[in-house]
Design a binder for these strands. Structure first.
Length: 200
DNA sequence: TGAATGATCGTCT
DNA sequence: GACGATCATTCAA
């Protein structure tokens, strides 16, 4: 069951970041389908969030994607090497987003092994935002894609985590965001081995 | 036109 | 546990 566009227009990005845990992220590239369960996310709270690219209503060519209506992907290059995949949420001109930080491989593990050049038995294959995106074959050509299309989409497989199985904590790699770096806007599935390590 | 800067990962010790 | 890779984007001039 594919999530409808209306799901992403929810204006509570913190709710969506938690609710997306357990949903299944699919990509289809050259007829090859891969999918993984989302097990770790971070919320980026639009213009008020110092860690967000759209902080202070900074509207540029790159951040323009974030200002789209919910249900659009936002992919950008980090450290010159890694593609990071975000889900744009809320309504038009309200630049909230959820960063997918880790997935648990579900479909097309052999394809992921090829892309990552390592066995699927290693959790590193999709742990961390750069790795998860690469395992799914996501690169900058996926920027500004409609998540209800047939290249990239998210399904609800009725995987429901109890509230006690979800943990929240500070986001990773955003120390420059000062007081906003301490906000508990990172969510993950407790004990899941694909969740990236938090490095204090 | 140019210099600085990351929402990170993998390799090496 | 430390560090180098590597480039689009951004802002200043």
């Amino acid at each position: 069951m594919k999530l409808p566009l209306s799901y992403y227009s929810n204006q509570d990005v913190l709710f969506l970041a938690q609710d997306l845990l357990g949903k299944v992220l699919f990509t289809e590239i050259d007829g090859e389908i891969t999918a993984g369960i989302i097990v770790e996310t971070e919320a980026y709270f639009g213009v008020q969030d110092k860690a967000s690219h759209a902080y202070g209503d900074r509207r540029t060519d790159r951040t323009e994607t974030l200002y789209s209506h919910g249900g659009i992907s936002y992919v950008y290059l980090c450290y010159g090497i890694h593609h990071l995949f975000n889900i744009v949420t809320s309504i038009e001109n309200d630049p909230h987003a959820v960063l997918v930080r880790a997935i648990e491989p579900l479909i097309g593990k052999d394809i992921m092994e090829k892309r990552r050049n390592m066995p699927a038995s290693r959790t590193a294959i999709s742990s961390g935002p750069g790795s998860a995106a690469k395992a799914l074959g996501i690169d900058r050509s996926f920027n500004k894609k409609d998540l209800s299309g047939n290249e990239i989409w998210i399904e609800n497989h009725n995987i429901q985590y109890a509230e006690a199985d979800i943990e929240a904590g500070p986001r990773v790699g955003v120390a420059y965001a000062q007081e906003d770096a301490l906000l508990p806007w990172r969510f993950w599935v407790k004990g899941n081995k694909y969740v990236s390590k938090y490095n204090p």
